[in-house]
Structures are given as C-alpha cells and as structure tokens.
Design a protein around this nucleic acid. Sequence first.
DNA 1: GCCTGAAGCGGAATGTCTTTCCGGAACTAT
DNA 2: ATAGTTCCGGAAAGACATTCCGCTTCAGGC
Lengths: 180, 180
Amino acid sequence: MRTDARRNVESLLEAAKTVFGTAGVDAPAKQITDLAGVGVGTLYRHFPQRADLIKAVIEREIDACADAAPALAGELPPGDALARWLDRLAELIATKRGFAAALHSGDPAYAGLPGYLLEKLAPALGSLLDAATAAGEIQAGVTPRDLLYAVAKLGAPLPGEEPGYGRRMVALLVGGLRRD
Amino acid sequence: MRTDARRNVESLLEAAKTVFGTAGVDAPAKQITDLAGVGVGTLYRHFPQRADLIKAVIEREIDACADAAPALAGELPPGDALARWLDRLAELIATKRGFAAALHSGDPAYAGLPGYLLEKLAPALGSLLDAATAAGEIQAGVTPRDLLYAVAKLGAPLPGEEPGYGRRMVALLVGGLRRD
DNA sequence: GCCTGAAGCGGAATGTCTTTCCGGAACTAT
DNA sequence: ATAGTTCCGGAAAGACATTCCGCTTCAGGC
C-alpha cells in the first residue's frame, strides 16, 4: 500500500473519530473529509460504505480498550484491575456516541461488530478474570463471553435515564462477582 | 378531526407497522404511503418527522403490551402471569425490528420513548408484581422501574448472537426473582 | 338537500446527502 | 529519469426526506 494512501486512511479515521464525537455518527461525510484535508472520493475509495468507516472507528476503540488490559494488570491488584477495566469498557459503550446504537442497530452492516468485540476483548478479559480468580478475589464460573455481553447490554444508555445509570448497573454486577 | 384524516392516520400506522416488520425501519417513506394508499404529503401532514411515525408505531405496541397484563392476571397464578408478561415484553423488544435500535439510538427524537414505556408499563407491571409478592411467589423489594430497564436492556438483541439469547437472559433474571 | 369555508389531500419540486466516476497527479521500482 | 501503477479530487448522478400549494373532500348551517 502506498504511503500517501496509508496516511490518508489515518487522517480519515482520526477526523471521523473527532467528528463523530462532536456532531454524532450521522454527520455529513463532507465534514469528515474537510477535516481530514481529503476529497470525498478518497473517503469512498477506502471505506466504500459509510458504515465501513463507522465500523473502523469503533474497531479502533475496541483495540485500544484491549490494549489497556496489560497495563492495568501490571499496576493494580487483580480484582481492582478487573473492575477498572470493565468500567473502562462500560464507559466506552455508554459515552461514545453511536457506539451502542451501532451495536444494537440490527443493521447487517454492523453484524460483525459484536463478534469483533468478543474476539478482541475475550482474551484480555479472560486473563484479568483468571488472575482475579486465582487470587481468590472473584468467584469462579463466569465466562468472559457472558460478562462481555452483559456489560455491552447493561452499559448502553437509554435516552432519558440519568447519565451513569448503565455504568452503575455494571459496577453493581461486578461488585456482585467479587468476594469480600 | 375529520373522519377521513383519522382513517388515513390509521392506515399509515398499520402500513408502517407492516413495512417496518418486513423491510426495517429505514424503508423509504414511499413504500409506506403506497401500502397505505395515501400520498407522501399526507404522511408528513400527520407525522412531520420520520421519527414521529416510528415513535407512534412503537407506542402502539407498548400500549398493546400494557393491555395484555389484566388478561394474563385473570388467567394464571400471579407468579406465572408475571413471568409470561415479562416474556411478552422481552419478545417485543427482541424481535420487533428497530424497536431496540430506536430505544438505544441516543437520537433526541426518541428521547421520550423510555419515559413513555416506563409510564405505561410500570402500572401494569406494578400490579402483576404486587400480586405475585402478596402470594409469596416472588421476593419483595424489586421496583417496576428497575425491572423494566433491565428487561429493555437485556432483551435487546446483539447482531450475531443466537436468537433468543436476550430472552433467555431475561427468563433467567425472572427465575432468580421467584421463590421455589 | 345544498353551500361554503375550512381541513385535508396528492404528488411535483426542492434540498441534502451518499455514492459513483474518471481525467489527471503522485508515488515507486527499475 | 521513466513507465506503470495506484490514488486523488471534486463534479455529477441518484436516492431520499421534506416542503409546498392548487385542488378535493368533508361537515355543519341554512
């Protein structure tokens, strides 16, 4: 792949993340290409469907979340590391505009997203979970998969509910898993 | 309101429900007006924003769900009536295309929806819950509000997960509430 | 029953957005 | 340096949602 092409993809992802954050995921494509300093054609060359761009941005966030796990594991006791990481995930789902919407949209364009989330985050969560279980700080028998689904669903905000309600429910769930 | 106008509104809601069910909530407006035998102008006269139509269709489903509660209460023991009603609600959220999406969209256009759901369903659920508690079939201390939110969130399908997963999780939750 | 003003209707026209297309510019391997 | 790709930009096409307005239909008063 040509270096200028890679650079453009990078600019587009960065710009899209910014625009999605401020104007929502339904912002006109033009706004994104202008910010990226690129023509519309370039956007569509790399992301043939609008949904592809959204998917790519979300996948980056998922990657970033997965990458955060080792650092937390190194800094905190296993139980705390687990709790903090799950809160980070809940925050991602609760606050990134359009993340929960895409996840629950039912649109086939986003069909692969939960799978990607599972695939990327299950190992990260698995190792945190194993460490916490081995340290006796968590009751055994919880699968990463079920926990991820639960967080993904409980963390999604319902419009009109107090902000943070979903995150609190997740914290409650996690608290229930921990031994005192 | 003129009778023909009311009739048209009725046709539109009926048509919209059908089209949303088959082609999804993003179906072109023309498809709906054609099925309803009405011009586009008529659609926009009654539902100025597209979201208004979607909201209206969903609110009808919510009403229907609320209306189902008394019948169930009359036919079944309190605990079973509660379980069946919650399953009906979970099914509504899990299978009606776009219902969960609208609920979790974050779009301000749907901001009132969770409130409407709460307002309409809390009394219905409250009476089922009270009856089951009084009969000793359910542990006390659950509020209709929290239970409704939990079902609304857990019941929402994640694309790619086996169908029925959400409904099963709801059933599990309900099972946990019941005394044996 | 008929008349009349208001309420409502249809669908062409408008505006906004996504998506396509292609002539020309920019990169890279030789 | 050059040839051969690969990529780029932005104008044009297409698909929608939404608006607008002349014409039709209703309903209450005579």
